[in-house]
Design a protein around this nucleic acid. Structure first.
Lengths: 153, 153
DNA sequence: AATATAATTATAACGAGTACAAAAATATAA
DNA sequence: TTATATTTTTGTACTCGTTATAATTATATT
């Protein structure tokens, strides 16, 4: 799947979102980086190239995407909301050392659950925590660490 | 498993936590109610019986429990941190209508994952969202709704 | 009983996210 | 085009959950 401006424009229009410049750039960022960024991260990166960008716009735009179902919230830590334009079913692994969030594939239909027979399930979320291979090799990604805040560790 | 003051006192002491009155009461609340409460909820309920209780103490105590590994954080919504003294492996279902959080059993060892071979996993979290049986029958639990704040719905 | 240590409390501060209204941009109509 | 309406973006203020800090109270130690 190629990520050019035109395909993003089409994606937004398909979901009745007017493809304004900031919206295109924010979606482009999500699709290109695939880094489960926080609002802070998105804003910090994009404001370099769009100096007039405001944080409120990032919030507004992301909520627009979420309501349109073309972006999902990744809630791992209670103090940081992350966003993911990959809405296919997959799990997230957060490294406790460098803070990076990795995707992993799950067959969540296979998760055996007991006690949910009479429940109507709309959304399934799976996230793990631990240490990523990079950090296991002690090659800590300093760049990431700087952008992370940790609690209770 | 019976939940009397003595067993709670023993549990805390086993984990090098001095069994002060507020600590016992907070752990008792978690074990007895099993309702995945927020700090707000715990404080609101307990302050009725312990008028001198402060919210800071609730925060301090819960963080103490978490570090001692006798309580876990339940992060479903990014705007509310919940707590659970049941540290056995299980999933959480949050009803989008009444806001109640239910437990369900999972065999998360069975979750087929791909891409985590070189990762060291410390913690596995599974949470679903949807509508609970009670709300499907339109018998909305008003009590719960009052205590919940919703976003993006 | 006097002192040291730990726990609890109140207050202030912080920061993520939202509300709101003004400004800017875009679309519509004359 | 120009005028007007609508939508989008922005800046500021505000809310609220959580943490930091320091004072007070309770508990343990000598």
């Amino acid at each position: 799947m190629n990520i050019n401006t035109e395909s993003i424009r089409a994606l937004l229009m398909k979901h009745n979102i007017k493809p304004s410049y900031p919206r295109i750039r924010i979606m482009e960022y999500l699709l290109a980086k695939r880094n489960h960024p926080t609002v802070e991260k998105i804003y910090g990166e994009l404001v370099k190239e769009i100096p007039t960008l405001s944080k409120t716009t990032v919030y507004n735009t992301l909520n627009l995407f979420i309501n349109a179902n073309i972006t999902r919230v990744v809630t791992i830590e209670d103090n940081e909301t992350r966003y993911d334009a990959d809405i296919t079913n997959h799990g997230h692994f957060k490294c406790e050392t460098c803070g990076m969030v990795y995707d992993f594939s799950i067959s969540s239909d296979d998760i055996e659950t007991k006690g949910l027979e009479k429940f109507e399930v709309h959304e399934k979320n799976v996230y793990y925590k631990g240490i990523c291979p990079k950090c296991l090799n002690n090659k800590t990604n300093i760049e990431e660490v700087k952008n992370e805040k940790f609690k209770r560790y």
